[in-house]
């Protein structure tokens, strides 16, 4: 009986301990906004470059969520319970959802400061540019080194394992078509069959990565010979010790991100303030000289970089860069996904 009482007491103590937690939930965040982005090393760099300075300057807490999930945002807008205030993502989505899931906000900003190439719709404010290049392992390829996408797909000239992003919405089709000799300006409409035929040639040598963490892990392990990667995450991996890899800044796919506000965002004012802060000349300059991304503003031209790797990987230094066509891509996003899933799951 005594032990029984002790246990009852213990149970009561557990319950008592649980109650204040329940009561504490009501304490709301005062001024805050929720930023949805791809997270990872990008987020770490952004925190230093402008998120923390923004929090200090305004007293607004920035809560971050990753990864970007447009399905979630769309559902939230549909049922009228929006949690996300700012999304950083590809312009395809800004074009696709402008005026429905996303609010038209370009009127609130001075859009003339941006390179017009990156102003593609009324909902996205250009945030940064970056590249999808490839990297080779310098310990493996010592003599002749790969320098084009054609080399990346050439297993006879450059045998070895190739890391490839497992995504139909990514830039795999573009890379394969460039490798197959298609001119950058003739990429669209994408010829899926031709691109996948090119991929057939390397299928048995592919190591897939799904997330930034897997990409970084593969590079830190040094176990792949060629890596088609996200420029920023891969560069960060090199800085963190995966220094066997050398970027090939020839023919990289150029990408840019935009900042968007979902319709009905609960902290719309804070969100506008945040975007203004982030796209200022000072923030962009600070960001692109400490992180492997490029500016979208005409008046930002970094000359000094935090380290040599960043300079090597700077998007502005690319040759023969390949631009995407966001309008074509958003209209065919379903087909891109289907074609890739159908091929890759076989």
């Amino acid at each position: 009986m005594i032990t029984g009482k002790v246990k009852q007491g213990a149970m009561a103590a557990v319950l008592a301990a649980a109650l204040p937690l329940v009561a504490g939930e009501a304490t709301a965040q005062n001024r805050a906004l929720v930023l949805m982005s791809s997270g990872g090393v990008l987020l770490d760099a952004q925190k230093k470059a402008f998120i923390e300075p923004f929090e200090e300057a305004t007293g607004i807490r920035v809560v971050t969520v990753a990864p970007v999930d447009f399905g979630k945002i769309q559902t939230q807008v549909e049922v009228g319970r929006v949690e996300i205030d700012v999304v950083e993502w590809a312009p395809e989505f800004a074009i696709r959802f402008c005026g429905t899931v996303l609010e038209k906000i370009t009127d609130e900003f001075d859009m003339s400061v941006f390179d017009p190439k990156y102003v593609s719709n009324e909902c996205g404010i250009p945030q940064a540019t970056f590249t999808h290049p490839f990297f080779y392992n310098k310990n493996v390829f010592t003599g002749d080194v790969p320098s084009t996408w054609a080399d990346f797909f050439d297993t006879e000239k450059f045998p070895g394992k190739r890391a490839v992003w497992n995504s139909g919405y990514g830039t795999n089709f573009e890379k394969a078509l460039i490798a197959d000799g298609v001119a950058a300006e003739d990429l669209y409409p994408l010829d899926f069959e031709r691109a996948l035929a090119k991929f057939d040639g390397i299928k048995d040598d592919i190591i897939y990565w799904n997330t930034a963490a897997q990409l970084v892990q593969l590079m830190q392990e040094g176990s792949v010979d060629l890596v088609a990667g996200w420029g920023p995450a891969a560069t960060q991996a090199i800085i963190n010790g995966a220094d066997a890899y050398v970027p090939v800044m020839n023919q990289p796919i150029m990408i840019y991100n935009q900042l968007m506000i979902p319709t009905g965002a609960p902290n719309r004012e804070e969100a506008l303030e945040f975007i203004r802060f982030v796209t200022s000349q000072e923030s962009q300059l600070g960001h692109v000289s400490t992180y492997p991304q490029g500016p979208t503003r005409k008046d930002v031209n970094p000359t000094e970089f935090a380290n040599e790797t960043l300079k090597q990987n700077y998007p502005g230094s690319a040759t023969n860069a390949v631009d995407l066509d966001p309008s074509w891509r958003w209209q065919h996003i379903g087909e891109m996904g289907d074609a890739w899933v159908n091929w890759s799951t076989q």
């Binding site: 997270g39 090393v41 990864p67 930034a212 963490a213």
Partner: peptide
């Protein structure tokens, strides 16, 4: 789960 996908 998100950290595993996100970073090392």
């Amino acid at each position: 789960f998100s950290s595993i996908q996100d970073r090392i």
